[in-house]
Nucleic acid binder design. Structure first.
Lengths: 242, 242
DNA sequence: GAGTGGTCTAGACCACCCG
DNA sequence: GGGTGGTCTAGACCACTCG
């Protein structure tokens, strides 16, 4: 029951994680079933208990296992899908879905920061921002309108190069701003005349309206985004934890 | 620099976590500042390095710190708010906000499971469900309409007692179904005649429409919920992680 | 009381990043 | 190089849950 044969370059706790995941996925460990006690697993795997615990903790985090103190560790009855609340670019998401997604550039300009955006990006009022407006289409149908605002001082190159959404993140990466997380606010709204025209829907039709601030690893806000999604074409999935 | 004076009943790693959090909050550790190396912290605190690391890991998880391999551990520039994507009852949320929230019961009955709900709850088609319809108000204004569906076999008591939303969770708790997480799907939609009337808005006005499946610790789906929120009264905040 | 997970130690060696 | 975090050990004792 040694698991080392696989990927000797991988950390032991990660090998434990993958070994247990495999046992769950192939049915060796069934829903509701109790795992062997941690000391036993440590012996079986030939590693220390702390390392076993770390592997188990990862799977608990993913929702495949749960622990009850004094009782044991068990496989969850139904495994909810992983990777919710993941921040990913439009392309990353669309490619997973297999849809033929395209991005159409409508505008790129430098604008002074409005009050709301300045606050979100922690920059001065009227500070120059790069504004990029894009339309997202699936097939021929426009599904979303994006307005991104990035402080010009963070990334002057954004005005020079051929940029698509994914690339702006990469450019920021190169400047030492690794994109880490975002805070997003979602509303339901009726489409304004301008938005209705761009998204080819009737004025007042319901759309999902989002404000998003994207932060780098060190906590610096690097992008403010306003997004209009067609209500009939788009839904937003999320995981909530108690 | 010992931190044990506080709460001797608390785990050491939690004391480390709180000690560091306090230093960040009171400005001893400033945004962007590097923490002492882990071995130094271990010596200062008089505990082992592994325990220090666990305390730090908790704060990284909260977004107050970040680590760079080979470089050091640092305080993030701006701390995003904690506790996003938390599953909480209407009362818990409203009480935090200080609003005078009330719940009005509209209906409680037993209904056979429709296909969609049966799939979400992993029960048979037409299996008896407890259906509870409630209206949520802030002041005199109705802001949300909730329809909860709970398998009757999980909780027959739901038909007997005086139940409010929070209580249904508690009843489930007592039956061994500790509520753990939820998967939610959000849409923008126009109000139907029925919903518009209940929420005192015009037919077709935009509303945030949510489907939510709530799971217990062991992965069992225990509640399916459909929720209509007034678009002009409600927004949904979430955190996305890359 | 027996069995389980929760915490903690005091080291060790490695991998990475910088000047 | 020297400094940092990343991983891992082989124990130990405690706290909780159950019959």
């Amino acid at each position: 029951m040694e698991l080392l044969p696989k990927t000797p370059g991988l950390a032991l706790y990660a090998q434990v994680r993958e070994a247990l995941r495999a046992q769950i996925e192939n049915g060796e460990l069934k829903p509701g079933q109790q795992l062997p006690p941690e000391p036993d697993l440590a012996t079986q795997f030939g590693i220390s208990r702390m390392t076993v615990r770390r592997g188990i903790a990862a799977l608990i985090n993913e929702g495949l296992l749960y622990r009850r103190r004094g009782i044991g560790t068990f496989v969850t009855q139904f495994h909810i899908e992983r990777d919710h609340n993941k921040l990913s670019s439009f392309f990353e998401t669309s490619q997973e879905l297999g849809a033929d997604a395209t991005i159409q550039f409508l505008e790129r300009e430098i604008v002074p920061a409005e009050q709301e955006i300045a606050e979100a990006l922690k920059v001065a009022f009227h500070e120059p921002l790069v504004h990029i407006r894009t339309l997202r289409l699936v097939g021929d149908v426009p599904v979303a309108l994006h307005d991104e605002y990035i402080p010009h001082k963070l990334c002057p190159e954004l005005m020079d190069e051929e940029i698509i959404d994914q690339h702006s993140w990469e450019v920021l990466d190169k400047h030492g701003y690794a994109i880490k997380l975002a805070i997003q606010k979602n509303h339901a709204r009726g489409a304004t005349t301008e938005v209705a025209e761009l998204l080819e829907m009737e004025e007042g039709s319901p759309l999902l309206f989002k404000h998003r601030t994207i932060f780098a690893e060190d906590g610096t806000p690097v992008v403010f985004m306003v997004c209009h999604n067609r209500g009939d074409m788009y839904s937003l999935k999320m995981k909530l934890v108690r």
